[in-house]
Design a protein around this nucleic acid. Structure first.
Lengths: 344, 344
DNA sequence: CCGGATTTGGCAATCGGTTGTCATCAAGAA
DNA sequence: TTCTTGATGACAACCGATTGCCAAATCCGG
């Protein structure tokens, strides 16, 4: 009835390669396992010559510490989870790399999970990973605040690109970049402006809109929100109709993907860019300089955000103090997709 | 002298949240821990009413199995490692996603490591992860065959984009795509052709060159190899000089990044594309349709490669038979960067 | 040369599940 | 009524490393 491996209970269970354990070393070196353990990770606790001998035996036997066994006793797995909504979204590439780099530097292993844009799947992943990691980083999470706090109460946790009360939040400040962008547009002579918003549930999209609104007013531009717009190429292409209908001469998109989609659609329909429409993206993500004209965009320090998130997470794990508050500022990257508006 | 936490040996060690264990459940339900264990994962082994009661107590206590403890005894961590040279290389995005998806489906956790293009760092990562995972997938590895075989002898292992004897290798067949591309170029009237090669140590670049050479000859095109070319935008831009010097009318690049770099450089210098030069990329990676003209490219089934790699890896872990041999074929994606050569 | 301080290293418990073995008990067969 | 048989659940060993505690060995000054 069952096809499970009921026979051969041992024999095939341990590593086929049969890793050496501290017990093997102890036997060969003629000491006790506890001595081996101490020799290997409490330098000085053990007589220098004994320690040396043990190290040699360990090397001979090709010993590698079994992290699972250590984790069981210590409760520390030296592992953290990074959960994000969409691995293939280029916005996250640099963030992931930053996280991985810091993790590796601190001898932590990174576990990557994807929630495929679903809050439920995200909660699932978090719940599943919870007992196996020391901490969790949630990037652009779709979970409600309450659920996030509940997780944070059980494990060290940081959220990136979202502000949650009582939870360590890493969120780049969009203001400097947006201010610069709108100043830039105003200086070029634009009088009308639209913000292309992302998913309704996105904290970041909401925040960017509020700031853009404020800045546009301050510079005397007319300002409207167009959206929500799906954060994909197709979403950006589809929004063109509404942008043209609104009759604006400049737009800021929630992110580069939307901006690029819009740009491609405009070019395909033979519009003159940037003359007829100035487009500003957000994030300076991979590929934003491939377009023609190359996209003017607001760079988010995503790499640093990833690094910082993991640094903070680990200090939370180690129960250290959180030192300085560092600001992650955005900056405007001027490229070719913005220009003075053509006179009609 | 030492800042380590020597005091407070217990108390803070276990989960702050104090997870329930099977011992807690056993106590509440009035049975032994072994009964709890069996009730929870050997359905039928335990009296139905007892089992039900145990399940209820477990739910009440919010019990979650500790995977570390299970792993220690069983030797199975339900975790696999994916090691690749560069996380931010868009070629891998879909591959990573495919791997993650299959892993999640099979209740495996994916650990991601990056070797930063260094064979030594890659070996390091593999060595470090070895005792903590059930299997390893190496993508576009830079390690020598011998070292790979040595790893494979110790843990289930698969390599992607590389052929290594006696090791499970997943490698998409570049031939169909290359044949189609060269046929396409020949049909457009091209008589000369160059292959822009990638890193010298890349198995895939070598393979693609050999096939391209063969196909070009078969279609009566002149053919040269230009390179090696660093697989970055800058590398692609830098190669323009040599391409022009070679006087060819069509090129196939080792990958899209190189092709896009070349394309951007040509546009920036005012060349007429695709009239003066037809460019074909490889991989159909993210952003290859952002350019103007959009890049004609050879699509590699990277998503499937990622899925297949993990499926194979897991069946290796489970010691199952490897069923059918599936072919991963490449296919030509015609876009705008190829056209009939301008008459000079 | 002695007594106390300091090293040094072994014993055994522990982390949380898993499973082989075995005793017990009830039901069915003879 | 007795024996067989299967169902049920407890006991204890085990996975590999860590560490509190203690005893033995060594060193020191007086």
């Amino acid at each position: 009835m069952d096809h499970e491996v009921t026979a051969v209970p041992r024999a095939q269970r341990p590593d086929p390669a049969g890793h050496a354990t501290i017990y093997d070393i102890a036997r060969v070196a003629g000491v006790s396992p506890s001595t081996v353990s101490r020799a290997l990770n409490k330098p000085g606790r053990i007589n220098a010559t004994t320690e040396q001998r043990i190290r040699e035996v360990a090397a001979d036997l090709g010993y590698r510490l079994n992290p699972v066994a250590r984790a069981l006793y210590t409760g520390q797995t030296s592992t953290f989870a990074l959960i994000l909504s969409d691995i293939t979204n280029p916005v996250y590439f640099e963030l992931v790399r930053g996280a991985e780099t810091v993790g590796a530097r601190e001898n932590y292993t990174m576990v990557l999970a994807e929630s495929q844009e679903s809050g439920a799947r995200e909660a699932d992943a978090a719940e599943r990973l919870l007992p196996a990691v020391d901490g969790i980083a949630l990037v652009s999470t779709r979970m409600p605040d309450e659920q996030i706090r509940h997780l944070a109460a059980r494990k060290p946790l940081v959220v990136v690109n979202r502000r949650v009360d009582d939870v360590l939040s890493i969120v780049p400040d969009p203001r400097p970049g947006i201010e610069a962008a709108i100043e830039h547009l105003a200086a070029l002579g634009h009088r009308s402006f639209a913000y292309l918003s992302g998913p309704r549930t996105s904290y970041m999209s909401q925040l960017r809109w509020e700031i853009a609104f404020e800045c546009a007013l301050a510079h005397g531009l007319s300002v409207v929100e167009i959206g929500p717009c799906e954060p994909t190429l197709a979403g950006g292409r589809a929004i063109k109709r509404r942008v043209l209908a609104a009759g604006v001469t400049s737009v800021l998109a929630y992110n580069d993907i939307i901006a690029i989609g819009l740009l491609l659609e405009c070019r395909d329909s033979g519009m003159d860019l940037p003359g007829q429409l100035s487009i500003v993206g957000f994030d300076d993500s991979f590929g934003s300089d491939f377009t023609s004209p190359p996209l003017t965009t607001i760079r988010s320090p995503l790499r640093q955000a990833g690094e910082l998130a993991v640094e903070r997470l680990l200090s939370l794990v180690r129960d250290e103090d959180h030192q300085h508050v560092d600001d992650l500022a955005t900056v405007l990257v001027q490229r070719g997709s913005t220009a003075a508006p053509m006179l009609t």
